[in-house]
């Protein structure tokens, strides 16, 4: 059986006045039905652009310059805008980072939900409204009838994100791409939204791509993790294994820099240096200038090598499988 989503050698480049920024440069991964993939990386690693590329929502001057995105057997890159429009919101939904900005401030919630239903299905306004109401109940917004008549500014950030999730759920999509949907929220709300989305996806069999920079958030949620750096996936594998035994020095640095129950006053570990500018990437391994294990070999470009059937890493000097990171 085909996987739900198969991305092969995706290239999304931004043609700026200062040169070509290869925001996504050869990303490949597969996602099975109902699976949760965590796409982890720092700002500028290309994780969000990967998400937008799947929906064909990359804004100029960026565009997909190569690769293949197979969704349930259809190539989204070759299909173009008309094919994508019928998938967007219907079979692939997206949730954005900032809930304060995703809902149109001058349109009522019911307008924004009903139009989503009717964009894909030829149903009456009343039927669309009933579906909208049902979706609001599903994400725990009450009283739904009153809330439908409200405007976005009458909701808190967490509530707005719930509305956005409700909109994403309207058509019971096969895949939801969530671009840091909890980053802008309070920690308590974050946890609620997280567990609700997890439950909703699990019950409806929806696959999820969770884009985040926060390892702690994604580790409890994702089946698999893909770590991105400078437009490439540098390590991939089952979440528990990647967290417990990271092979790439960058992944290891990320995990080490999460504060945990260390002695009070102990220095936090950090990755030295900064993410390189996409316009001036180093030759060879992009992480080399910041890597404690780098040597002459790393001046060549490493490829993503499978270590086991489940795990792969893009490094000439990966950490040993036996080396476990310090657990709290």
């Amino acid at each position: 059986m085909n996987p739900l989503l198969q991305v092969t050698d995706l290239q999304t480049h931004f043609f700026t006045r200062d040169g070509v920024a290869k925001a996504v440069d050869g990303v490949s991964f597969t996602l099975e039905k109902g699976q949760v993939l965590g796409l982890v990386g720092e700002s500028g690693s290309g994780k969000s652009v990967t998400g937008f590329s799947i929906l064909g929502l990359v804004d100029p001057p960026g565009r997909i310059t190569g690769g293949q995105i197979l969704f349930d057997g259809t190539d989204l890159v070759a299909g173009g805008e008309p094919a994508l429009r019928h998938l967007r919101g219907k079979r692939i939904a997206m949730i954005f980072q900032d809930p304060m900005m995703t809902l149109n401030p001058v349109l009522r919630i019911d307008t924004q939900m009903v139009e989503t239903v009717r964009a894909h299905e030829d149903v009456s306004h009343a039927e669309a409204l009933r579906r909208a109401r049902e979706a609001l109940v599903q994400v725990g917004i009450s009283p739904p009838d009153e809330r439908l008549k409200s405007y976005p500014h009458q909701f808190s950030g967490g509530m707005r994100q719930r509305v956005a999730i409700a909109i994403a759920l309207l058509h019971k999509p096969d895949l939801i791409i969530a671009d840091e949907p909890t980053t802008a929220l309070d920690v308590t709300i974050q946890a609620q939204i997280l567990s609700e989305l997890q439950t909703l996806c699990a019950t409806s069999g929806t696959a999820l791509i969770w884009i985040t920079h926060d390892l702690a958030v994604v580790s409890g949620l994702a089946d698999r993790l893909a770590v991105m750096y400078a437009g490439r996936i540098i390590e991939e594998g089952p979440t528990a294994e990647v967290i417990a035994r990271p092979r790439h020095p960058y992944t290891r640095g990320l995990i080490d820099s999460v504060p945990r129950g260390k002695r009070h006053g102990a220095m936090l570990t950090q990755i030295k240096g900064m993410t390189p500018s996409l316009l001036k990437l180093p030759k060879g391994c992009k992480f080399m200038p910041r890597c404690p294990r780098a040597d002459r070999v790393c001046e060549a470009e490493p490829s993503l090598v499978p270590l086991t059937s489940e795990r792969s890493v893009r490094c000439f000097h990966p950490h040993d499988d036996a080396e476990e990171v310090l657990q709290p």
Binding site: L55, M94, F96, D98, N104, P105, V106, L107, A119
Partner: peptide, 25 residues
């Protein structure tokens, strides 16, 4: 604005995005 991108992500037709989402703002 994100809400225009979100409207596209919902699968709305271009005409509705311009005539409702953009025009009203």
């Amino acid at each position: 604005q994100d809400y225009v991108k979100f409207a596209r992500a919902k699968g709305l037709a271009g005409r509705r995005i311009v005539l409702v989402h953009v025009l009203k703002n």
